[in-house]
């Protein structure tokens, strides 16, 4: 029983991490038809910025309590700015060349982890965190690491915030309409490009937050972390439906749980394999879900 509980909470934690990556990926793809291969890099940027700040480089930030919160905020902010720069500098000049947009993000996805490992080395760095978050607590006989709860809580907060933003604000309305028909949004007199930068900023913030908290989850940061999460985030995005935040949340939980349980109860790695094959199967069964209006 305690194993099941531990696996379930760990799976949920992993799902939370996937959701933080996939929610932005899904919005970006839904609105702009850009499959952002640099999204994993944004997560890594957030993770390293948080680590850098918490390691004592940012005044006021540190590995304990409020200092750590500041470090996470700093990491998220850096990821947000990175995402906006990416959109303005690379995606925007290529609006009428969709294939090149994907290629440009592929290039960034390769270059950023390489840069990170050039600066801080290719090996994993231990991730500092408050002592309060490194312990475990008992639930139904299982010892569950507290950081899982932090991840789940953060993902839930992001989900609620995104729902409020999309449902309750004019910018959110523009994003939802743009996912459906971008040209018509401009024909109503709205500069949809501002929404593009906005969803990149939101996606970058969520991914960077995922990176910051993922550091707690894994206990370390390494340059390739984001990229290895990316393919599972793709699965979540495709499963949940492009542009759907609620769909991404459900799919993230499903993928996280399946992966944890399958990896534990069958051969190690089979869960990962199952999820990847699931991606192929889904795309083949409902290609309209993704290719409907896609270059």
């Amino acid at each position: 029983m305690s194993t099941v509980v531990l696996l379930a909470v760990t799976g949920l934690g992993l799902g939370a991490l996937y959701f933080l990556v996939a929610s932005g990926l899904s919005l970006i793809f839904g609105l702009m038809d850009v499959l952002n291969f640099a999204h994993g890099a944004l997560l890594s940027v957030g993770a390293y910025a948080t680590w850098w700040a918490a390691d004592g480089h940012l005044p006021g930030a540190g590995s304990g309590g409020p200092g750590f919160v500041l470090a996470v905020c700093f990491g998220t902010a850096v990821g947000t700015v990175a995402a906006m720069v990416l959109e303005l500098a690379l995606i925007r000049p290529l609006y009428d060349r969709p294939r090149e947009q994907v290629l440009a993000t592929v290039g960034v996805g390769l270059a950023v982890p390489a840069l990170l490992s050039a600066i801080w080395g290719p090996d994993a760095r231990p991730f500092p965190g408050p002592a309060a978050l490194s312990g475990t607590f008992g639930l139904l006989g299982a010892h569950i690491p507290v950081n899982r709860l932090v991840l789940i809580g953060a993902a839930a907060a992001v989900l609620v915030a995104l729902r409020l933003f999309l449902g309750g604000t004019r910018h959110g309305l523009v994003v939802r309409a743009g996912v459906e028909d971008r040209a018509m949004v401009t024909a109503l007199g709205i500069d949809v490009r501002r929404a593009f930068t906005l969803v990149f900023a939101i996606g970058g913030a969520a991914a960077a937050l995922g990176g910051a908290l993922g550091g707690l989850y894994y206990g370390s940061v390494d340059p390739g972390q984001g990229t290895s999460l990316l393919i599972f985030a793709f699965v979540v995005v495709v499963m949940g439906g492009m542009g759907s935040v609620a769909g991404a949340a459900l799919a993230a939980v499903g993928v996280g749980l399946v992966q944890q349980f399958a990896n534990y109860y069958t051969a190690s790695g089979l869960g990962d394999l199952a999820v990847v094959v699931l991606l192929a199967a889904l795309l083949l069964l409902k290609p309209r879900g993704i290719t409907g209006r896609l270059a």
Partner: peptide
């Protein structure tokens, strides 16, 4: 760009009506 022209005072009802179905 389209949005700037439209904001100068054009209302457009397109051929396929351009209604956002999910809104």
């Amino acid at each position: 760009p389209t949005h700037a022209l439209v904001r100068r005072g054009i209302g457009y009802a397109p051929e396929d009506r351009g209604v956002f179905a999910a809104l």
